[in-house]
């Protein structure tokens, strides 16, 4: 019974979402707010389980050092009490500092070293040539090639236009990458839409046979 009600409710909610295509209306706004409320509830429940499992439970078992993050966490709420509001900066600074450290260590491993290593290919076939030149020219375009008015001097500065060549190659690679990613995203979103329509016209209004 609960599942049947749920299935029809799902159908109604999907129709409420699609009603936005006509114009913004109450049904869409209610669905949107219901979603935000649920998402926030999920975040609170997840946050509480983190506090309990990583902070309160080990503290009860005698790991008193955990008083530090718990106090820092409570200090975040000092912003609501003006005389002590500056204390909310302590946990904020702690989070930012630790996050910066985690970002550096994570990015160096996963994004920098791994990606550079994967680009060090022997230039023995077309794929590898495109990969190496494409990656290098994209990077050069972002980091070293001046754009706008400054770009005017590039050709004059290097004499034979290597700067322009790298810039154009970089641009072409970026445009092809963005275009293909865009096309891929369109198709992914369309498959989402097809799945929803299949649900609506297969289970709610049975027009499509199983």
């Amino acid at each position: 019974m609960a599942d049947t009600v749920g299935t029809y409710l799902s159908g109604l909610l999907i129709v409420a979402c699609f009603s936005y295509l006509f114009k913004e209306n109450r049904a869409f706004t209610y669905a949107e707010h219901l979603y935000v409320g649920f998402a926030a509830a999920q975040a609170i429940v997840l946050g509480w389980s983190n506090i309990k499992e990583m902070g309160l439970d080990p503290l009860r078992q005698g790991k008193f050092i955990l008083v530090i993050p718990l106090v820092l966490g409570v200090l975040l709420y000092a912003r609501y009490y003006k005389p002590l509001s500056h204390l909310a900066r302590f946990p904020l600074a702690f989070m930012m500092g630790a996050a910066a450290g985690v970002t550096i260590t994570g990015v160096i491993d996963a994004q920098l070293v791994a990606q550079v290593k994967a680009t060090m290919l022997p230039m023995t076939n077309l794929n590898n040539v495109v990969m190496v030149l494409g990656t290098a020219s994209t990077l050069a375009f972002f980091l070293f090639i001046p754009i706008g008015k400054k770009a005017e001097g590039v050709k004059a500065a290097n004499g034979f236009g290597a700067g322009n060549l790298v810039r154009n190659l970089g641009r072409a690679t970026i445009m092809l990458a963005f275009g293909s990613s865009y096309g891929y995203t369109v198709m992914a979103r369309l498959s989402y839409l097809v799945a929803r329509l299949q649900f609506l016209f297969g289970r709610i209004i049975p027009l499509i046979p199983d």
């Binding site: 926030a40 975040a43 609170i44 997840l46 946050g47 509480w48 983190n50 506090i51 990583m54 902070g55 955990l66 530090i68 993050p69 718990l70 820092l72 966490g73 409570v74 975040l76 709420y77 912003r79 609501y80 946990p91 702690f94 989070m95 630790a98 996050a99 450290g101 985690v102």
Partner: peptide, 18 residues
């Protein structure tokens, strides 16, 4: 420190809810 950050960030989620 990394675990403590998770705990403090969990409190920050509550701040968002408030």
């Amino acid at each position: 420190v990394v675990n403590w950050r998770t705990i403090v960030a969990a409190f920050a989620l509550g701040l968002g809810a408030v």
